[in-house]
Design a protein around this nucleic acid. Structure first.
Length: 482
RNA sequence: GGCCCCGUCGUCUAGAGGCCUAGGACGCCGCCCUCUCAAGGCGGUAGCGUGGGUUCAAAUCCCAUCGGGGCUACCA
């Protein structure tokens, strides 16, 4: 049987890192097994689902490069792959279940249910609702016939238990005393997650459901439902949840969890995928860095860690730096030029693009986030509007500064070849003449030319900047020293 | 409260009775390199939650305990 898995987010929020990890693991499993990866929208919560979230999920799945074979946008033989389009089908199943006696119209009120639960809590017994508050069947049917609104609950067989083998958690057993007669169709006729999701998994011939651990205790419900539909239950794999630094389930209050925030912050999709993959799974042999293809080749769902993992932005950032350094210069420029232009508020000329290319490898090496690049190269493309205050104070307000600036101007104005080597030699000779250390002598030049004590290597920077601009900036800074 | 899951450095993990004096990575610290910042190199810091067993031998098996997490909605 060929593997069919699905990632089925609810568009009640932006695609967040936890969901992205679930999507990734589904993707890796499908590719590793030569199966089909399906993208579905579990949008049964009409109150909270929005098109904006729906689009955000699609956009960031694409951004991550987690290409799906069937489902949203792509289509397939199962309709729209949006649950909101399939209400008729869910109602049909719910009614069939009622007819077969596997489900029933429920009249228990919220306050009755509350009482039931608090009584259970007090008695120390299971809080799972067992249907004991319902009117007798004849009563119920006549009330429905008279047009009463009622939700439909699944009748969990009691006594009984559900067993299944979870790929990451091994053998699981749930006593039906702990599983409540859950609602499958709300009184307004809309399906709940349990129904819609299970029906879709059956209808779409899903073979493996890989999802978060938060759904582990709902799994007996889904298995019971599947069985009642006369279908074969899928194989489940429940992934541990992602935690914030405080050890609680990762959520907005831990800061950015939306994928879009990481994209905007300058993370590369390759790095995000890589990090999410090793967060809870190990490739073995101390390998930490691997492309999607390499991960596919080694992926083993059963080897995925059972423990909850704390999401560590620092390690992600490190990995991002690794990926940035691995890019070739051309790719680096292509991927960041728009950010630089946005920062400048104008497009780069061809000449400036060449300058960017020239210094790319040096900038690349000190970049961890794409969003930092504009800061690193701004001095090349625009005049220095203001010098970094701390930098100025530290190196310009020194006795060496005027000497270094004057010396540099003199040494560079008469320089024959404007090459890195020539600049290097001239400036070092200048140091020699004035008895300045490299640190004391070069830092004022750096600040004069780049505005800060932190910049790409000096000689290369000057080379790319050009002689005229260099000399102008040296004298501008010198003038400020009185 | 009930049920379920989990428990190796601060964090992510390797580890499936002797290869463990517990390995790697991020972080942190130090040194080197060095025109700044990075990158890189070298070194260091730090862990098997606790208590009992089983065994010649336990991070690995068993029990208990403690701790963390999830579910307990006409959310998903």
């Amino acid at each position: 049987m060929t593997v069919r898995v699905r990632f089925a987010p609810s568009p009640t929020g932006y695609l967040h890192v936890g969901a992205a990890r679930t999507a990734l693991y589904n993707y890796l499993f499908a590719r590793a097994k030569g199966g089909t990866f399906i993208l579905r929208s579990d949008d049964t919560d009409r109150e909270r689902s929005t098109d904006e979230f729906h689009d955000d999920i699609l956009e960031h799945m694409a951004w991550l490069g987690l290409e799906w074979d069937e489902g949203l946008v792509k289509g397939g033989e199962h309709g729209s792959y949006r649950q909101s389009d399939r209400y008729d089908r869910y109602r049909e199943v719910a009614r069939a279940l009622v007819d077969a006696g596997d489900a029933y119209y429920s009249f228990a009120t919220a306050s009755q249910l509350d009482d039931f639960k608090s009584a259970a809590r007090e008695a120390g017994t299971s809080p799972a609702y067992d249907g004991s508050l319902e009117p007798d069947p004849h009563d119920a049917t006549s009330r429905i016939r008279e047009g009463a609104q009622a939700a439909i609950r699944f009748r969990v067989p009691r006594p009984g238990e559900t067993r299944f083998t979870d790929i990451v958690r091994d053998d699981m057993v749930f006593d039906h005393r702990q599983v409540d007669d859950f609602i499958i169709l709300r009184s307004d006729g809309t399906p709940t997650y349990h129904l819609a999701s299970t029906v879709d998994d059956v209808d779409y011939h899903i073979t493996h459901v890989i999802r978060g651990e938060d759904l582990l205790s709902s799994t007996p419900k889904h298995i019971l439902l599947t069985l009642a539909m006369g279908a074969e239950p899928v194989t489940y794999a429940h992934l541990s949840l992602l935690m914030g630094p405080d050890g609680k389930k990762l959520s907005k209050r831990h800061g950015d969890t939306a994928m879009s925030a990481y994209r905007e912050a300058g993370f590369l999709p390759e790095a995000v995928n890589n990090y999410l993959a090793i967060l809870g799974w190990s490739l073995g042999d101390d390998v930490e860095i691997a492309s999607l293809d390499a991960m596919v080749a080694k992926f083993d769902l059963g080897a995925v860690s059972k423990n909850p993992a704390v999401f560590d932005p620092q390690k992600l950032t490190w990995l991002n730096g690794v990926y940035i350094r691995e890019m070739d210069d051309r790719a680096f420029v292509d991927r960041t030029v728009a950010l630089v232009e946005e920062d400048l508020g104008r497009e780069l000329t061809d000449g400036e693009r060449d300058q960017f290319m020239e210094i790319a490898s040096l900038v690349k090496e000190r970049t961890k986030l794409l969003s930092e690049v504009a800061d690193h190269v701004r001095f090349l493309f625009s005049d220095i509007e203001r010098y970094d205050e701390a930098s100025w104070k530290k190196v310009m307000e020194t006795p060496e500064a005027p000497i270094a600036l004057d010396g540099a101007s003199e040494a560079l104005s008469g320089l024959g070849d404007w090459t890195t080597e020539a600049i290097d030699a001239a400036l070092r000779a200048m140091l020699e003449v004035h008895g300045l250390s490299a640190r004391k002598g070069f830092q004022p030049i750096r600040v004069a030319v780049s505005g800060s004590t932190v910049s790409p290597p000096l000689f290369e920077s000057l080379k790319v900047l050009g002689r005229d601009v260099t000399l102008t900036r040296l004298s501008n800074a010198r003038a400020l020293l009185s």
